[in-house]
Design a protein around this nucleic acid. Sequence first.
RNA 1: GCCGGGGUACCCGAGCCUGGUCAAGGGGGUGGGCUUAAGACCCACUGGCGUAGGCCGUCCUGGGUUCGAAUCCCAGCCCCGGCACCA
Length: 968
Amino acid sequence: MSKPDYSPIESPVAYEAKWARLWREGRIFEADPIKGKPKFFICVPYSYQNGPLHLGHAFTFTRGDSYARFKRMQGFNVLFPWSWHWTGEAVAGTSERLKRGDPAIVRLLRDIDNVPEELIPRFTDPAFICKYYTGENRKVVDAMGFSVDWRREFYTTDLHPYYSKFIQWQYLRLREKGFVSMGEHPVVWCPACQSATGDHDRLVGEGIVPEEYTLVFFECDGFYLAAGTLRPETVFGATNVWLNPYAEYVLVEYYGKRILVSRKAAEKLMEQKHGINILRPINAKELMGKKCKAPITGSELPILPAGFVDPNVVSGVVFSVPAHAPYDYAALLELQRNITEGMSMYAELLKGLRPISIISVPGYGDFPAVEVVNRMGISGQDDERLEEATREVYSKEFHEGIMKNNCGEYSGLPVRVARDAVKARLISSGLGDVMYDLPSKVVCRCGSECLVKVVKDQWFLTYSDPEWKKKVRMQIMKMNIFPEEARQWFLNVVDWLRDWACTRKTGLGTPLPWDRSWIVETLSDSTIYPALYTISKYMNDGTVKPDQLTLEVFDYVFLGVGDPEKVSKETGIPKSVLESMRDEFLYWYPVDCRISAKELVPNHLTFYIFHHVALFDEGLWPRCIGVNGMVTVEGEKMSKSKGNMIPIKAALAKYGVDATRCTLLLAAEGMDDPDWRDKNAQETRRMLDLFLKIVEEATSSELEACEDRLERWLISKMVKRVKVVTDAMESLKTRTACHEALYGMYNDWKWYVRRRKKLTRSVLTFLDTWVRLLAPFAPFTAEEAWSKLGNGGFVSLARWPDYRPEEVDELAEASEELIARLLGDLREIIEVTERKPIRAHVYTSSAWKLKVLSIILGFDLKDVMKEPGIVIKESLKVFPDKRKEIPSIVKKIVEHISSFPSEISRNVLLELASQEKKVYDEAKSFLESEIGCPFHIWAEDEPGIYDPMGKSRHALPLRPGIFVEINP
RNA sequence: GCCGGGGUACCCGAGCCUGGUCAAGGGGGUGGGCUUAAGACCCACUGGCGUAGGCCGUCCUGGGUUCGAAUCCCAGCCCCGGCACCA
């Protein structure tokens, strides 16, 4: 593929390009099978090449790459491949708009997507668009430091030499297994464009989908009035049929019958049914007052005029159910109230109409529609509140309604059951049918009003197949899904999934192998392509020619079916090559992890599982899916029309790669939506620079060996951070992991350098670990630091730090906690006095209180908090002379002890309490410099103690008394 | 409507599963240190009250469980996302 360098990727961070180059030259991310080495195959969905990659892509990709890098450092042989999605109709749409000279599209390409002006004319070719963006985006992916094995790259559609072969093999095999079938399907259709009108192609009516209505045939004079309804079961409660006297009606020849509908409806039906014809117009007025016969019930109902009947809605014929439909009741009321001139001849008929109750609903009487209309004070059919009234009655009756005894064989059935049963009976007896219509107006981008067309001969993936679903559900239960909440979502999607129309007439893609007038639709040609990554390098390097890829080759490699000897003879691919392809597939498969944004849960990710389940052996089904949220920018949804779409390239140019990666990672995890904020990116940039400065400072200092409490503290904290980061990564909590690796480690470092004025040898251990922990998230900065620390090679290939629990030192940690608390107490006191301190005195508690502490720790702290009495009694036995102090001292100690983290064991607390004075003595000079005055540390019962305020009495174990002398 | 996710301080956001360490962390703001200055960096404060480490308040609303609730239970209100011919 030609990839002219239209514009370079620039980062303000000089070392980023350097390391990207060294990785490329070292080919360190190229992964081949290694016998005996555990593998890890991770991938992200390829992106559609109709524009520059933006921060939304960057988020998912960075999570994937961080995980890949983490696993690589853990010693796995990691495969992280890349490719590009070209399939779809959108790019073709762009080309068309450009050809028509749409100025908006030129503006978008030039101003938003920064396409060089001179190239825009070439965008009239859809393939060029994909090619252009693929070239641009490959540079971005490379610059981002994604650890990709580029030898396996491909793109989709039949423009690619072998991708289509793979898809055609997939579809032939799916069809053989019965997962592809032909059917018909209603779509929103533009009669002018002669194509389906997707949401993005609409001027009006986004989100509107075809609604299915039931036509109910009422016989009259040898033909049928076809009334449309959402509630066929209410035919039992029909009182009459309404026609609009001023609308145009026609008689339609309809499968051996003649039906009457509005002219508009007839036109709609022509798009939905085979071989129906409009016979002649009918004057509705001539039908008024006549009787017609309802299906199933056989009731004779009058035909009456009503202006509210809209000929543009469904069939333009309505049957009235005033008992259960608020609109019908309101209309009836109004007509009965003021019978106009033209209506006078029907006065008797109108007056005779009474609601017929057919459904009982808890909480309502016989006539819910009447009740609701009266309650809401609705007086006429134009009242807007009828919408709400209808919603209420429909919903109540659907969920809780029961058909009454006057409903024949449907009596006693729940409404929701009766509805489908009545509909089925109407259709099978030829007295009804299905008609689709749009619940509200939809206008195509071309300006024409859309209608519903039933697309014939459409190919479907039969996702509704219960056996198929069952296997998919079982796999979903088995696999790892992060976060866990997404699992239930997947299960729900499987439940609701219907058959999926998998072919299209237009756009780029792979022709359906058995009917080349169709193209495999975009979501349907991107399900099992991770399998292709395992062998694509053989085609890319020319070992296997695309035209050698017969069905038998794919059968052998992916299914283990067939004899390699024979396949080799037929194709000319050496047998050894076939066998290594097969081996390589089996080495990498199954996919160990696929990471994607949550918008793909209800479609791509679920399809991905379905197709693997359909085609491969059970051991090769996906092992894990990670789902994440969708990026917003400064709290707003990102979109081109809002102009807040941030291309990755722009973020890189401003903050550098690692800051971009970390800002995204730090913004959210789980299914929460990360919010990109400029301020956060600046801060992250500063933090990474500071980290490098810390490394430089440490490596340029004279470091002495030192073994003390604080050194042990530093290493202990570090070891614990290792565990937190590792555990977080294992469950794909990239935010927690990145945060701990960056800020967690930094907080420990800050405290350490504040306590220790001069750096020691231990900091090298600390920094070594810190660099490794950062490497998955900020790989460039980590490599730079790695080399500054004097290491050769790449930290990208270094070992992930092990958790070494033996280096945890709870006592050292608790000691520092004690010092921090003392410092906090001192600060608070000094602040309240609002004076400069001249001397501070600290009193540690006397030995008997320590003994009381040990008594307390002999009990379960929970019990003690509930019942302090047990400890008080016990303590009194030991110190009968402290009768006065003990009750309150015990309570205070218990309260204070409970403020320590519960992971600190009681042994550590006791040990710490016994060393308390020593701990303060060791930190004396630190405390003096922090507070800015001399310190004295006394024991409570020390002779000659200076304690003019009697503060030593208040001393408790692990909480000394304090007296601060201040300038008066 | 159906399904999924949420509501935490000035802002963003953790904690919730497994109740007590607790209202993390970052931004912004205020004050101080370092500095010729600026920037960077460091420290403190950032719900209220307080001349001694304290007291009171707070996690959408209202109830409940508990010695103890941001966390568990019940009811309600509100917000966001997906719902198929878009990728």
